[in-house]
Design a protein around this nucleic acid. Structure first.
Length: 117
DNA sequence: ATGTTGACGCATG
DNA sequence: CCATGCGCCAACA
């Protein structure tokens, strides 16, 4: 574990099923070594690595459990990810969305993880 | 090296 | 609710 990206993946890796974290929170957990936007970039890089061999890729890291601070999804800007995929994956874990693709953040936030780190 | 862009966040209007 | 502006930092041309 050397690069900040790997630290991001290591955190995302630990998010339990049905729980989520936000970009800004992860950024804070890294002690400002990477901005919230940087976390977003790490996720984007993850999607690209899904084909390449490597320790972390879209297959073994639950990237869909990372959302923005408003409880909304933001993957629609990334062409590498099918529209609605993230929402679908999260709903499969029991997370509900309203008509605006928004979820109740506090009730699904991975608080235990925040305490540990 | 430099300017632009963006899976972001927060404050303001 | 939407639009800007500023801070942030990695990727890209």
């Amino acid at each position: 574990m050397s690069s900040v990206y790997e630290q991001v993946y290591a955190i995302v890796w630990r998010i339990p099923k049905g729980k989520v974290l936000t970009y800004g929170l992860i950024s804070n957990m890294l002690n400002s070594r990477l901005s919230a936007q940087g976390v977003g970039w790490a996720m984007q890089a993850l999607a690209k690595n899904s084909n390449k061999p490597g320790k972390y890729n879209a297959t073994n890291v639950p990237w869909h459990r990372v959302i923005n601070s408003q409880g909304r999804l933001s993957t629609h800007k990334n062409p590498d990810i099918a529209p609605g995929l993230q929402k679908k994956l999260l709903e499969a874990e029991g997370i509900k969305f309203d008509a605006e693709d928004k979820m109740n953040l506090p009730s699904h936030l991975w608080k235990e993880g925040l305490l540990e780190l």
